[in-house]
Simulated scan of single mutants.
Amino acid sequence: MDSGYSSVLILLAVWLISRCGAARKWEYEPVLILTTSSDDSLIKLESSIVRLGRGKFGISARVEWNYDTTEETMVEAVVYRSNSGDESDYKLLPWAIPKQTFYDYLNSYYKDVIMKNFAPCSNVPQFKGKFQPPWPKRTYIGDKCVFEAEGFPDIVPPGFYKIIFNCTGPDQPSWSFIGIFKIINKMF
Rank of each mutant, 00 (worst) to 15 (best):
I155L: 14
E150Q: 15
I163S: 04
T101D: 00
N107M: 00
Y161P: 07
F177I: 07
W95L: 10
Q172P: 10
S176D: 03
K91P: 13
F131G: 09
F152R: 13
Y105M: 05
I97Q: 04
D104L: 08
N166H: 05
I114L: 15
D171N: 15
D171G: 15
T101K: 00
F181P: 01
P98L: 10
G85D: 06
I114H: 13
M115F: 14
S176R: 00
Y103M: 01
P157H: 01
E150I: 15
G151H: 08
Q132M: 04
I114W: 13
F177Q: 06
F118K: 13
S88M: 15
P134M: 03
G159I: 01
Y140N: 10
F127N: 09
S108R: 13
D89W: 00
G129A: 01
C121D: 10
I141K: 11
D89M: 07
N166P: 05
P125V: 04
V156L: 02
W175D: 08
V124G: 07
K130R: 05
F102C: 08
G129H: 04
T168I: 13
A96E: 15
Q100H: 01
K116T: 12
T168D: 12
N117C: 05
Y90I: 03
Y140P: 13
V156M: 05
S174C: 12
P157A: 01
C121V: 10
Y109P: 09
K116N: 11
Q126C: 15
Y105H: 03
W95T: 10
F118G: 12
K162E: 03
T139S: 11
F165A: 02
E150L: 15
P158M: 00
E148P: 12
F147L: 14
P136S: 04
N166G: 04
G129C: 01
I164W: 07
N83D: 14
G151R: 01
I180F: 00
Y140R: 05
P125L: 03
P133L: 05
Y90M: 03
S122Q: 08
Y109W: 10
F165R: 01
W95V: 12
S174R: 13
Y109Q: 04
D143G: 14
S108Y: 14
K128T: 12
K111N: 12
F127H: 11
Y105F: 09
C145D: 08
E87K: 12
Q172H: 02
P136D: 00
V113E: 11
